[in-house]
Design a binder for these strands. Structure first.
Length: 555
RNA sequence: GCGCCUGUAGCUCAGCUGGAUAGAGCAACGGACUUCUAAUCCGUAGGUCGCAGGUUCGAAUCCUGCCAGGCGCACCA
């Protein structure tokens, strides 16, 4: 509809120019937008204002010349010039009816777009070290990454969701040591538990599991062997837990990528050699440094320490290089905001490997403040005790948790109130939206029982011209705008755009529902309203799907 | 000190790729169920868009400088 209006304006501008009413046929960047107030029409063009300088003419005068040259259309009721020179279009109701049929026909693909044109995109998210269970922050990252993936895919991108497993290096060894020490402790030995070891209660559980599995005499082994066995056992176990927690959270990955595999295939080594050969890496004080400064970083970064061990950054260089080798045009990493200092150096690695900086994007997800009834939930990093993602999903449910995580822009910190997320009323946005879906199903079931419709699903609207109430037209307009919101969400990589959209659609529906009966004595009106309401149901479902939230038939 | 994010109603936040009278939810107050699900709706009230400049027909939105809060600034991951 927007593009239609735009073409009309352009045609009128051309005509006005030919008639000599406009001095120039230059067309500036103009916008067709939906005004906030109904009095200002359904669509509005700022053409006159943005071309004022070009035409050397007063905006209102330009607007009038445009309006007088617009071909009349049956779906346009009137056109006005208003304010500083807006051209406002008022559409007749019949302009909107086709939207209902589009929704019903296109069904699950309504709102989809081809803006991505099949471009290959990888979204990497969560990627938590397998050294402990996922916590709240990971939950937000998981919800965001998963939703961004869904949205990009719906917008026509070829998306792969990936989890990077840091299954190599020092933190895994530390994990092994932690478990080993707890194990010795359980067997009555005196131990000193170092500061840098993992302190959570889950470490003791792992030690216990290991004793059960391997028997009592495990501690007699040579320490080195024991620690690496502990590490392997613990990492596998924890990763298994992470996978199952994520799947209970409704998050699935297309690929789990192992850091260790980069070493096994010599990719890390090759990356270092390649950069060294190109003088991007130099030696100083026994360590190898990558000249990230040359790419805009504050200082150069170590890739191999003077003890010969590679840093995490070294495998990250190889990892990101490998992503592009796998054919991704765009790579999106979802990180916690506390990692922002890392962006420049990865960007340096990407650019040094011959990829354009624009092909690498980082979504920084701000921190989550966990509350219970408005009061902060105590989380002690010292003792290693924290509220896990699993705790939250168990307590409030997957749908409520996901919806809450996606309710705000990830650029802002998030207050997550467990009490609020559990409430089953309008305070809790997830039920507000899901309720629309369930309510409509109820209506459709009743309509079927009364013989008004054969099935609760159908592909063609009926008697749509009976939809004349302003609330009905407003609903259709909202449906018509879904695709644009999907594109905006995909373009900005911000899933909360979909959240906001769903809230306004739900609000419009609930208002309508309370004011009008869908099933009335008038058969034609009932059929029209059933068509509209089914369309609303489908769009709600499509939107919820993008956020990874279920659309229940009954509540 | 440097970098990233944030500052909008009492609270939590939308709006920020510039548009007309800045929106929603909660909290407050007053209403609506013999009705397709009240997990809902309707109404009232609530604002120097952190502060100061600048850009222009027009700034919550863009630029600069302050102020405040969060998070980072390792041969850690």
């Amino acid at each position: 509809m927007k593009t239609k209006i735009k073409l009309i304006v352009l045609a009128a501008a051309q005509k006005a120019f030919e008639k000599g009413l406009l001095p120039s046929d230059q067309i500036p960047d103009m916008e067709i937008e939906e005004p906030k107030h109904n009095l200002q029409g359904d669509f509005s063009s700022n053409f006159a204002m943005v071309s004022a300088g070009l035409q050397k003419m007063a905006p209102r005068k330009i607007a009038e010349n445009i309006v007088s040259n617009i071909e009349p259309q049956d779906y346009i009721e009137k056109i006005e010039v208003a304010g500083p020179g807006f051209i406002n279009f008022f559409l007749s109701n019949c302009a909107w009816y086709p939207v209902v049929d589009q929704v019903l026909e296109q069904d699950k693909s309504f709102g989809a777009s081809n803006m991505g044109a099949g471009q290959k995109v990888q979204v990497e998210f969560v990627s938590a070290n397998p050294t402990g269970p996922l916590h709240v922050g990971h939950g937000r990252g998981a919800a965001v990454g998963d939703a961004v993936g869904n949205i990009l895919s719906f917008a026509g991108f070829d998306v792969q969701k990936e989890y990077y497993i840091n299954d190599s290096g020092r933190q895994i060894r530390t994990l092994g040591t932690s478990v080993w020490l707890r194990l010795l402790e359980m067997e009555g030995k005196e131990i000193i538990f170092p500061e840098d070891c993992y302190k959570g209660a889950y470490i003791k559980d792992l030690a216990r599991n290991l004793i059960e599995k391997e028997g009592k005499n495990f501690s007699n082994q040579d320490e080195e062997t024991a620690i690496s066995l502990c590490a392997k056992f613990a990492a596998d176990k924890i990763l298994g837990g992470i996978k199952s927690d994520l799947s209970e959270f409704g998050v699935t990955f297309d690929n789990w990528f192992s850091e260790q595999s980069l070493y096994d295939s010599n990719r890390v080594q090759k990356a270092i050699e390649d950069f060294t050969a190109r003088d991007l890496i130099y030696e100083e004080e026994g360590a190898l440094w990558f000249r990230t400064e040359d790419f805009g970083d504050e200082k150069n970064r170590v890739v191999v320490r003077n003890n010969g061990l590679t840093t995490y950054f070294a495998s990250d260089i190889a990892y990101h290089g490998h992503k592009y080798e796998r054919g991704f045009d765009r790579v999106i990493d979802v990180w916690g905001a506390d990692h922002h200092g890392y962006i420049k150096r990865i960007d340096a690695a990407v650019v040094a490997s011959g990829t354009k900086s624009e092909q690498f994007e980082v979504i920084l997800v701000q921190l989550v403040n966990l509350l219970r009834g408005g009061k902060p939930v105590q989380m002690s990093t010292r003792s290693g005790e924290f509220v896990t993602l699993k705790d939250i999903v168990d307590e409030v449910g997957m749908d409520a948790a996901r919806f809450m995580f996606l309710s705000r822009s990830y650029d802002s910190g998030l207050e997550f109130d467990l009490e609020l997320a559990k409430q089953k009323n309008s305070d809790n946005p997830v039920y507000y939206v899901q309720y629309v879906h369930a309510r409509i199903t109820g209506i459709l079931l009743k309509a079927r029982d009364e013989g008004l419709v054969e099935q609760i699903e159908f592909q063609k609207g009926e008697q749509l011209e009976m939809l004349t109430a302003p609330e009905e037209i407003k609903l259709i307009k909202l449906l018509a705008g879904f695709g644009e919101q999907v594109e905006k969400s995909a373009d900005t990589l911000h899933p909360h755009v979909i959240f906001t959209y769903l809230m306004s659609l739900a609000s419009a529906f609930h208002g309508y529902y309370n004011k009008y009966k869908v099933i009335t004595d008038d058969k034609a009106v009932s059929k029209a309203r059933l068509s509209l309401v089914l369309a609303v149901k489908k769009v709600i479902r499509n939107g919820l799907y993008l956020l990874g939230v279920s659309a229940p038939e009954r509540m």
